Simulated scan of single mutants.
Amino acid sequence: MRWTRGLALALCALILAACTGGPVKRVSEPAARIQQLTVRADGSWSAELRIENFSSIPMRFDRFDLALSLGEDAAGRLQGTPALSIGPESADVVVVTLQPNGPAKLAIADALSARRSVSYTLKGSLTATPDEKKQRDFDVQRSSALSPAPGLPGVLR
């Protein structure tokens, strides 16, 4: 009888000790990429910027300032203050309007008419506040490519 009570007490203590740790709260570098770029009738671009939170906790994204380059040439800046909360290991999209420079407009028009991809680079920073923590600036550098979307004139994905 004593042995059983001692075993039960030890088991309860072990269970309580296991409950104290909780999940690990990890803050990881977020990322940003262009999900879709649409050429508008007025010559400006509408960029769907996908912000990815790789942390194990929610983060609120307060600002972004990203230089956009097409190939080696600067195209303009994607800037905004979305005040967007993104859950752990999730992503969300922010739409940003950009007035590109002349060479960038030509590069995109050429890619659309030739139905070919165009490489791009985003470089800058995301300002975010991890859940219950201090606001931080994260450096972002992403290189990828956009291709014309079939059946959607003026759209690259």
Rank of each mutant, 00 (worst) to 15 (best):
T4K: 05
T4I: 13
G6E: 14
L7S: 09
L7G: 08
L7Y: 07
A8S: 09
A8Y: 02
L9W: 11
L11E: 01
A13C: 15
I15S: 07
A18C: 06
V24S: 09
R26K: 11
Q35E: 15
Q35D: 15
L37N: 08
V39Q: 06
A41Y: 01
D42M: 03
W45S: 01
L49M: 05
L49V: 12
I51H: 01
N53I: 03
N53E: 03
I57G: 02
F61R: 03
R63Q: 12
A67W: 00
A75D: 02
L78C: 04
P82V: 02
A83L: 12
L84T: 04
L84K: 12
E89N: 11
V93Y: 05
T97S: 10
Q99K: 14
N101W: 00
P103S: 06
P103V: 04
A107C: 01
A109F: 04
L112V: 04
A114F: 10
A114C: 05
R116T: 13
V118E: 01
S119L: 03
G124P: 08
A128G: 08
T129K: 03
T129I: 06
T129C: 03
D137C: 01
D137S: 12
D139G: 14
Q141V: 14
R142W: 10
R142N: 13
L146I: 05
S147R: 12
P148S: 09
P148Q: 08
A149R: 06
P150T: 11
G154K: 05
V155F: 07
R157L: 08
